[in-house]
């Protein structure tokens, strides 16, 4: 327990030390999730840093990160455990060759831990060096209700039963972070078990800091203009507004192109980095001049 930060401020600083700029609200949610041993449920538009914070959390706590990417039909075989059938069959043949006839014994031999393939949820119950891992359950909204129901049980008991072997129990419960893009509502029962936080698009100042942290060597002026441009772009009526991830990609692209400030040609050529729908690109191109003018205004800084 002692490895967890002792206060909200400490949490915020520790995240920053690992190049993650967090709001106070997010720091409170993270801190409480750690202290109270609750899962942290993060929702927000794609590309606002939901998955990123989990990686940082694992670094911060210097423990390993176990990731479970959700998809429809995700079942126990791929989320919890599976048997290594090929090796089990070989073992049976070997036992047969050695003249083993005792059925009970065969069963016991074949269903040993050495034939068990541990999938993320089972792995998450194991501490290494006395430290529980960080478990990321990514994009839970993609999984189906069946999996969610199973997860509910897992998150309250921290144990998994393999009928042939027995029950695996966590010495220390893992730090669990669940993310969702809201393509489906997560069931209320699960939500209520979690600390909930909605990550919003960052403010100008915060996004600028993120760009400066994450894209080293980016010229001051370019960073300011690029961020101001993206901030203006988000106010437009777009199908998919650019996230922070896109801003970072864009800033890196502009840097790679050797730019020191925004110009309308380069903006038009690189809009595809920011916007992923053709309709949005067309719309943004029509307004690029206005947006650029706003981004270049010194008052925006």
């Amino acid at each position: 327990m002692n490895m967890f930060p002792a206060s909200v401020e400490e949490t915020q600083k520790a995240l920053e030390a690992h190049h993650y700029i967090a709001d106070k609200g997010l720091s409170v949610a993270v801190f409480l999730a750690l202290r109270l041993g609750r899962p942290l449920l993060l929702e927000g538009e794609p590309g606002v840093g939901k998955t990123e914070i989990v990686k940082v959390l694992a670094q911060m706590l210097s423990t390993r990160l176990i990731r479970l990417q959700c998809y429809e039909g995700l079942d126990l075989n791929s989320a919890v455990y599976e048997w290594d059938y090929a090796r089990q069959m070989m073992q049976i043949r070997l036992l047969e060759a050695s003249g083993e006839r005792d059925q009970e014994k065969v069963r016991h031999e074949v269903f040993g831990t050495e034939f068990l393939l541990k999938r993320p949820l089972l792995q998450a119950l194991e501490s290494a060096n006395g430290k529980a891992p960080v478990l990321l359950i990514d994009e839970l909204d993609r999984a189906d209700e069946e999996f969610e129901a199973f997860l509910l049980e897992f998150l309250s008991d921290w144990q998994i039963t393999v009928p042939e072997i027995g029950t695996f129990r966590a010495e220390k419960p893992p730090v669990v972070v669940i993310t969702s893009n809201r393509t489906r509502e997560i069931h209320d029962a699960l939500k209520r078990r979690c600390m909930y936080y909605w990550i919003d698009y960052p403010s100008f100042a915060k996004e600028l800091r993120i760009v400066q942290e994450k894209v080293p060597g980016v010229p001051e002026k370019l960073a300011q203009q690029a961020v101001a441009f993206v901030q203006e772009l988000r106010k437009q009526d777009l199908y998919k507004a650019p996230g922070v991830a896109e801003t970072l990609d864009w800033a890196s692209s502009l840097l790679a192109l050797g730019q020191t400030e925004l110009s309308s040609d380069v903006v038009e050529e690189t809009l595809g980095v920011l916007l992923k729908y053709q309709d949005d690109v067309v719309k943004a191109k029509n307004q690029a001049r206005d947006l650029l003018a706003k981004a270049q205004m010194p008052t925006a800084l």
Binding site: K24, G25, V28, L32, Y197
Partner: peptide
């Protein structure tokens, strides 16, 4: 601020 956010993240799920 911490008080407010503590309430928010433990009581609100939507």
């Amino acid at each position: 601020v911490a008080f407010y956010h503590a309430a928010l993240c433990s009581l609100v799920t939507r």
